[in-house]
């Protein structure tokens, strides 16, 4: 009995130490960021501190003074991030489910095509996309920022792999025998089963959209009222001319907070670790 307990204890001790070290490595730089947001520029240049300063209101005023409209940026970023997250997760799951469950002609080619699309580098695609949207007159509007997320090959790829592990065809058969329509099956059975995976992808999609810079730069750069937070933060850096570090750090901190909130909300669903395999062997 004793040796087992010792084993348990030492295992847990090692684990927790490891976890805490990692915790510090992750948190320290971010904590510094938040602290710097409350200090004056001189204090920041003078060195690092773990104690918050009192300059936060001042830093906020500096940001306002430059005309950096953070609430507007927040609003734009939120609209785009929420829409793209919802669209990409829902439709990618739909598409992955279709590939998984149905047997239609060209299915293999289609999936292969999707996989190939995940391998396309984003960058030059951007210039081509920019040209194309310019020709179509769709620049400086939110449509090209949001609609394309319906076709998200990477997310489809993830869900296909995920459903391979998580989805049991017997479940679907059972529902069909019960008389459910295909749509109902998807919405009422597949979606709930995929919650952990869906929320995982949702977080990634949200963060990806929230922090995106190059895409918004080219698509909505010309309309200052549509600028998202990253564009606005860059403007702050440019206007503050690298001299108002306090304001810059506060800006960074403010961009960070909404995604932390979204993450805390979503992570509950992942953490609850729904064990799948609802069909016992």
């Amino acid at each position: 009995m004793d040796s087992y307990r010792i084993k348990q204890f030492s295992y847990k001790f090692i684990c927790y130490t490891f976890l805490i070290i990692l915790f510090l490595i992750c948190v320290l730089p971010i904590y510094m960021l938040l602290i710097n947001a409350t200090r004056t520029t001189e204090a920041i240049n003078a060195g690092f501190s773990l104690i918050p300063g009192t300059n936060i209101i001042n830093n906020w005023n500096i940001i306002q003074g430059f005309g950096i409209n953070i609430p507007l940026g927040l609003r734009n970023s939120l609209i785009i991030a929420i829409s793209t997250t919802f669209l990409s997760v829902y439709f990618s799951l739909l598409t992955a489910y279709a590939i998984n469950i149905y047997d239609f002609k060209f299915k293999k080619a289609f999936y292969g095509f999707i996989l190939a699309m995940t391998l396309v580098p984003m960058n030059l695609y951007l210039i081509g996309f920019f040209q194309y949207m310019h020709h179509l007159g769709m620049l400086n509007s939110l449509t090209p920022m949001i609609l394309p997320s319906i076709a998200a090959p990477g997310t489809v790829f993830f869900f296909k792999q995920y459903l391979d592990s998580a989805l049991v065809p017997e479940l679907i058969q059972a529902a069909r025998i019960d008389g459910a329509t295909e749509f109902e099956i998807f919405n009422k059975i597949v979606l709930p089963i995929s919650k952990p995976g869906a929320f995982t992808m949702a977080i990634f999609a949200f963060v990806g959209s929230w922090n995106a810079f190059m895409g918004p730069l080219f698509i909505i750069g010309g309309n200052i009222n549509l600028h998202t937070l990253p564009l606005i933060m860059q403007r702050l850096q440019g206007d503050a001319f690298r001299t108002d570090f306090g304001a810059i750090y506060l800006g960074m901190a403010i961009s960070l907070i909404p995604i932390i909130i979204v993450y805390s909300i979503f992570s509950k669903y992942i953490v609850s670790g729904i064990t799948l395999g609802s069909v016992k062997e």
Partner: peptide
């Protein structure tokens, strides 16, 4: 009015293709 920072070359790299188009 629209403003794009030139810190990392964003302004120039956005403006030139735009003018070219």
């Amino acid at each position: 009015f629209t403003e794009i920072t030139m810190q990392g070359g964003e302004y120039q790299n956005w403006l030139m293709p735009l003018l070219a188009l």
